[in-house]
Structures are given as C-alpha cells and as structure tokens.
Design a protein around this nucleic acid. Structure first.
Length: 567
RNA sequence: GGCCCCGUAGUGCAGCGGUUAGCACAAGAGACUCUGGAUCUCUAGACACCAGUUCGAAUCUGGUCGGGGCUGCCA
C-alpha cells in the first residue's frame, strides 16, 4: 500500500494561495524555467524545474521553458539542445511555450528608447574600470558619471548609433538613471546594454548591443505574462531593480520570489565549476556519471522519478542548506527497488567447481525478476558444474559474524542449490578456486529436511556467463563542500578513487536483452545500468548506487573500533 | 562602517498564539527474510540567546549573537 506523500505547502505556494485569494493575477498561475544556455543542467536546476513546472501542474497553470540567451559570448546551441532533452527526460512538458529572450530583443530596444525619452536612462562613455570606480563600494557611496546628464536627444542619438555598430566593444553603455548613492549597489545606475560584437546563436549578427540580465529578465517575464518569477536567493538584492524597471515602464508586473538553491554534500553545484571539470578533462564530458548533471545522472542510472521525488522531498525554503548526498541515494534506491528487474552478476569472480555435479549437464533454473513486483515475471538462469561466485562471499578464516561461504560451510546459491565448500585451491596464498559439493535435494533453493543456511549468495554459470566491464563510482570529492574550502581550488579535493573499472565481470545471459540506459539490480550488489559505451562486442555497466550493506557497515565500525584501541 | 536575507534533532523540511514540537534521511536496537536488500517495530536526538506583549510564545515585537548574499559591460 502506497502511503500518499504529504502535501507540503512551501512558502512559495503560500504566496500563490494568497494571491489567488486576493485575485492579484485574476486567478492565473504562470511560471517559467529560465536557464541560460551556457552549460548543462544539474540537479540544482532539477529542483527549480520541479518547482516551476510542479507549481504549474498543482494550480493548473502554465510553465514556460525560456532560454535567457542575452550573452552571446557564453551561449551555445549545444546547450539549448541538452537542456530541452533534460527537461523532457525529467518528465515535464512546455507544450508550445519554448521561448527565447532573444526573441524580445527588438521589443526591449524599444522599451529602452522609452526609458531614455523619460529621462531615466543615459549613454555613458566611462570605461569599465571607471564605472567600477564611480560605483563606490559597500560602505562608500558612488558618484555621478560626467555623462549622466546628457540631454535626451543626445542619448537617443548615441544609443541608436550603439545599435548601428558605430562603436567598439566597451566604448559605451546604456545605464539606468537611478541613484549613485543607493545603499543597494545594484541600484547605482546599473548597466542596461553593453556593446558586444559577437555572433548570437539565434540572432546571428543582427545585434551588437545586448541587454543585461537585470534589464532583460523582468521584461521577459512581463512580456510572457508570468505571475510568479521564481529565482534563487542571490537575486534578492536585484528585486528592487526588477521592480524599478517594470514600474518605470508602467508595464505588467510579475512578482519575483527567491528560494535557496540546492547544495549537495561531496559535490559542486555550479555550471562554472562543472565547466572547468569538463574543459580540464577531469571528467569524460558533461554526461560523466560522476557529475551531478542531469545527463550524468541519467547515464549513471538515476531514474527521472527518483530525481523528482528527491526534489519534492527536500522541500523549498530560504535558508542556505546542504543536503546529504545519502538522501539522494536513498531516493534512487527507493525508486529503483520497486522498478528494476533483478539480475545476477559477479564483479570479482572466484571459480567454483561442484565436484559431484555431472560434467556436461546444464539446468535451467527459475528466478523471480522482481520480488517487489510479481507482474515483472520470471526468467530462466543456466546452471552447470563450474560457476563463479563473488570473491567477497568467501573467507578462509571467517569471523563469527561472517555468514557466507567458508571451508566446511554450507550456503545457498540463489534460486539453485545448497553447496558446501570442501577444498580451497590457492596460488600465492590467495584462494583462486573452490571445490564444493552440491545437494541435489535442494534444487530451487529449498531443503526438504528443513535445514537452514545462514546466507544466500549470487553466482553465474561460468560457461554461460557474459563478460562485462563494470564502472564503479564513489563520491567525486573527498570533502563535504569542495567549493567552500578556504584558499584552495576545489579540484584539489577530487577523490582519486571516484572511478574504479572492473574489466572482466561475469553476468548471467539475460544481460544481452538490455540496451543502453536500461536500469537493473545486480542482486546483493546494487543498482546498475547499461552504459552508452556498450557495443555489440562489449558490455559496459555503470553502478548507480550500492545496495544498503549492513555487513560492510559492521566491518567499517569494527575497523574503526580497532584503530581507536590500537592508537 | 552600508544594504538585503536567514537561525527548529547530525542533515533536509513541517509547525501560522494552546501539540507529549511532527515527518523523512542518517544513527542505535530488534523482528522477518532464498538479496546481510526490501519490509515492519522500537529507541535516542532540536525551537541560538535575552527582554517584551499575552492567561499562554518555536510562533508576535525589540535587541544580542551567529550564518549567508551584494562592490561583472555574467546570469
């Protein structure tokens, strides 16, 4: 029985409820997800996507996908494509509302003219460093540019010539005329347009002046009839400006609401830093499975619903916080447990020969595809005299709490037989082959005499197994907050063991029915998925996340105890 | 020295003047089990501080302390 998720009423939905009550927007709810196409989306964006599209769903409103493409020097078409794919993959639909800020450039230009005419904007000839200097700082008020009081006619003429391409990059800017001594630095005559002789991914070379975020964003929202413009906390100080522009123009005025962006332990959540990792080849690309990008997580094996659940469960607030990476993992396990077919595969094979099993016999044993979901059916697994089991499932001198195979001990091979270890073959002190006997009476895994075994282990038939490469991932960084370390580059904290490649794993034949991006569980090991590097001749698997492992935890605490007493 | 935002278990959220301060993850104990998985049960754990308002404050007000953000022609 599924327990209904409690309906969390976050502060944003409370504001919307209030607006609905007062009929502020005539009953409309219209949000937008406004990425800049300058990189790939990450899990932090997923939070925003779920929020914006989720609110639209909840209130039967609309959510636009709008690319905020106002800076041609950083934006690329590749990013537009990846973002569209990611949003779609996450399960959201912008219908016919795929929009671009660049579609409004002409309109924005006219609005700028309007502001100039109203005496609220001026062309400034000050170079960039002077503008900075004139701005003052946190505690010192700024001072007016000598060009601040140019007559309207001159401003109009200059601005039109900026647009016409008569000036070099950086030679002039258009600024709002607000207040150079305002305590909020954003209000000290912010730049509205800069000259950029750069080719834009959509408008090409038709423009050489491009609007700044503060000027553009509110207009985009206004033009689209957005009701609630949801953004992250760092834009809080920009809201007065957002409001100022819209009021100065006397146009439709959405409400900006800020929430805290997502932070996750042991990772970085910034397109800028992720770009460094990609460009510096610290990863294989934007879709490297160790990255918190949507593409990376998809390749790693995360399901869209696991990400959506995660985003729903972390909530929305205004406190800066950092979510445990374990919580993300909990959500994948939770989802994948219910939806993933099970398979058996051996990561680090140890050969087992069943001495009393007929030499050339093969049996087909029946296995359940998903114990959590009987509708997923059953499958046959081949069994024979020579098998592989996991090296970890055998210990020559086991401690008392080790339940698995050991000399003289009996365990169950899942869905197969009880076996007992009779002999250990070693080279250089390491077990390389086990001789066991099987009990024919236990076929299927049940002992007719009712005797119990302490554990059930997984196995594959040696001659039937498919070889595969498994890529095991560990946390990407060694510290909780790699980007927040004092006086240090975040790349210093990369975990050198974040990727472990096991080139020759042994997997049951059913693996061949899967295709890239298919997800499954290796029984007793974890959730895996087929990597996109897989070809006809080579199977590559990614470990999404390990199963919860109380044995490993026991060992870890025992180890800790030991080092505590010895030191 | 300025402006803005924020302080509830280890972590993330809920609590909207009267609750034994709730939920989830993590932690600990146990049950069950052909995955040392899943599931189930139980345990421990928090209102930053000080005043004020009120019969009554985690909730309202003021202050203190603490955290975050803001000085791009980035978004």
């Amino acid at each position: 029985m599924e327990v209904a998720e409690p309906i969390t009423k976050d502060f944003i939905r409370e504001i919307i409820n209030e607006d609905l009550k007062t009929n502020k927007y005539k009953g409309r709810v219209h949000t937008r997800f406004p990425p800049e196409p300058n990189g790939y989306l990450h899990i932090g964006h997923a939070k925003s996507i779920c929020l914006n599209f989720g609110i639209a769903e909840d209130y039967k409103g609309l959510c636009n996908l709008r690319f905020d493409d106002t800076n041609p020097t950083k934006e690329e078409e590749e990013y537009v494509q990846s973002i569209k794919e990611n949003v779609k993959w996450l399960g959201f639909d912008w219908e016919d509302r795929l929009l671009f800020a660049s579609d409004y450039f002409e309109q924005m230009y006219n609005y700028a003219l309007q502001l100039i005419n109203a005496g609220k904007a001026y062309v400034d000839d000050l170079p960039a460093d002077k503008i900075t200097e004139y701005r003052g700082n946190l505690t010192k008020p700024g001072k007016n540019s000598p060009y601040r009081d140019r007559p309207v006619e001159e401003n109009l003429d200059l601005f039109q010539r900026m647009k016409a391409g008569e000036f070099e990059d950086g030679q002039k800017v258009l600024r709002a005329k607000i207040d150079m001594s305002h305590p909020n630095l954003n209000m000290r005559d912010p730049v509205m347009y800069r000259i950029l002789h750069a080719s834009h991914h959509r408008t090409g070379d038709t423009w050489c002046i491009y609007p700044m975020y503060d000027w553009a964003h509110g207009l985009e929202d206004s033009l689209e009839g957005i009701t609630h413009s949801i953004c992250t906390l760092e834009f809080e100080n920009h809201r007065p400006l957002y409001d100022w522009f819209l009021d100065a123009l006397a146009v439709y005025h959405p409400q900006q609401i800020e929430f805290a962006r997502l932070n996750l332990t042991y990772t970085v959540m910034s397109k800028r830093l992720l770009l460094q990792l990609v460009e510096g080849k610290y990863v294989s690309g934007w879709d490297d499975p160790r990255l918190p990008t949507i593409s990376g997580m998809r390749r790693r094996g995360y399901s869209p619903s696991s990400i959506r659940n995660f985003c729903k469960r972390i909530g929305v607030a205004k406190v800066n916080s950092i979510v445990d990476f374990e919580f993300l993992e909990h959500n994948v396990r939770d989802d994948l447990n219910k939806t993933s077919p099970r398979l058996m595969g051996v990561l680090r094979p140890l050969k087992v020969v069943l001495e009393n099993y007929p030499d050339n016999q093969t049996e087909e044993l029946e296995a359940v595809n998903n114990p959590e979901d009987p509708t997923m059916g059953k499958r046959k697994i081949p069994f024979s005299k020579t098998l592989f089991i996991e090296q970890d499932d055998f210990m020559e001198n086991p401690p008392k709490d080790f339940y698995r195979l050991a000399p003289g001990r009996e365990v169950r091979l899942r869905y197969a037989y009880f076996i007992q270890c009779t002999k250990v073959v070693k080279t250089e002190g390491r077990p390389v082959e086990l001789h066991c006997t099987y009990d024919p009476a236990t076929k299927g895994g049940y002992a007719p005499d009712g005797r119990k075994v302490k554990s059930t282990i997984h196995w594959v038939s040696a001659s039937h197994a498919h070889s595969a490469e498994a890529r095991l991932y560990d946390r990407f960084f060694t510290v909780l907050d790699p980007a927040g370390q004092k006086d240090a580059d975040f790349k210093e904290f990369l975990n050198p063991h974040s990727l472990e490649v096991l080139p020759d794993c042994k997997v049951e034949p059913a693996i061949s029915t899967l295709k890239p991006f298919d997800r499954f569980q290796f029984e007793r090991l974890g959730y895996y998925c087929v990597d996109s590097d897989t070809t006809k001749n080579r199977i590559v698997l990614n470990r999404t996340v390990e199963l919860r492992d109380t044995w490993a935890k026991l060992q870890k605490t025992a180890q800790k105890k030991e080092t505590n007493t010895t030191s």
